[in-house]
C-alpha cells in the first residue's frame, strides 16, 4: 500500500513510486521486526557489505541484504516462507561491518521469532527444546562420557541439572509458561507423525 505524499491527485498519480511498494507489503511487519530486533533495518541503503561478509552466502541462495530489504518493505510472507531464513549461523560478521550500524543478524532472529508464531520452524530447533525440557541440557550426558568423567575424578554427572535433577521443574515451569513444550510436541508430531 503506497503512502500518499499529500500532492494534488493527478500529481500524486504521476509521481507515485510504483517500484518500491507492493500489494503484499505490510508496514506493520517492519515495525514489529524493529521492535523485536532492537535494530533499524529501515536505515539500510543496500550496500551489500552484509552479504559480502556472510559465510552462508557463497554456498547457498541466502542473501542477508535481501532479508533486510524485505524487513524495510514489509514483505512479511516472502521473508517468513523463505527456507533460507534458517541458514544464518548468527556469526555477526554482517553486524560488525554494516556501515549503517544495523544488526542484520538480529533482523533474522526477529523474523525467525515471527515465523515460529506461524509454526514455520525447522524440527531440529524444536528437538533442542524437548531435550532441555526433559534433562535441562540441549546436549545431555551419556554412559561413555560418564565413565570418562569418573576416570578424570569428576562426578559421573556434572553439578548441573544432571547432578541436581530437582532443578528441572523450574525449567519446565518456564517452558510451560510460554507453552513451548506443548507447541514443540504438536509441531514435531504434525511433521513426523
Amino acid at each position: 500500500m503506497a503512502r500518499t505524499k499529500g500532492y494534488p491527485a493527478p500529481l500524486e498519480e504521476k509521481l507515485k513510486d510504483t517500484r518500491l511498494y507492493s500489494d503484499e507489503e505490510n508496514p506493520q511487519f517492519t515495525k514489529t521486526v524493529e521492535k523485536i530486533s532492537m535494530t533499524i533495518p529501515h536505515m539500510c541503503y543496500q550496500c551489500g557489505t552484509c552479504t559480502a561478509s556472510c559465510p552462508s552466502a557463497p554456498r547457498s541462495s541466502y542473501r542477508i541484504r535481501k532479508f533486510v530489504r524485505r524487513a524495510l518493505l514489509g514483505l512479511e510472507m516472502e521473508a517468513l516462507n523463505d527456507p533460507d531464513l534458517w541458514l544464518c549461523t548468527t556469526c555477526y560478521s554482517c553486524t560488525d561491518r554494516c556501515p549503517r550500524d544495523i544488526a542484520p543478524t538480529d533482523v533474522i532472529m526477529a523474523m525467525r521469532n515471527l515465523a515460529f508464531k506461524r509454526d514455520i520452524v525447522p524440527v531440529n530447533f524444536l528437538k533442542t527444546v524437548t531435550a532441555i525440557y526433559s534433562s535441562g541440557h540441549g546436549v545431555p550426558n551419556n554412559d561413555v562420557n560418564r565413565a570418562a568423567r569418573e576416570k578424570l575424578g569428576l562426578p559421573r554427572d556434572p553439578p548441573t541439572t544432571h547432578g541436581y535433577p530437582e532443578f528441572i521443574k523450574g525449567i519446565q515451569y518456564i517452558l510451560d509458561y510460554y507453552e513451548l513444550k506443548k507447541n514443540a510436541d504438536r509441531i514435531i508430531k504434525e511433521r513426523e507423525g
Binding site: I36, W86, T89, T90, M109, A110, R112, N113, F116, V121, N124, F125, L126, T128, V129, I132, G136, H137, G138, V139, P159, T160, T161, G163, Y164, E166, F167, I168, G170, I171, I174, L175, Y177, Y178, L180
Partner: peptide, 28 residues
C-alpha cells in the same frame, strides 16, 4: 560449582524460536 545450572539455553535454537524464552531461561 554452580548447582542446578542448565543449558544456557542454546542461543541459536532458543533465540530463533522466541527471544523472551531465551531471556527467561538464561536469567534462571
Amino acid at each position: 560449582d554452580l548447582k542446578g545450572a542448565s543449558c544456557c539455553p542454546a542461543p541459536g535454537a532458543f533465540g530463533s524460536i522466541d527471544l523472551n524464552i531465551w531471556y527467561a531461561m538464561a536469567a534462571r
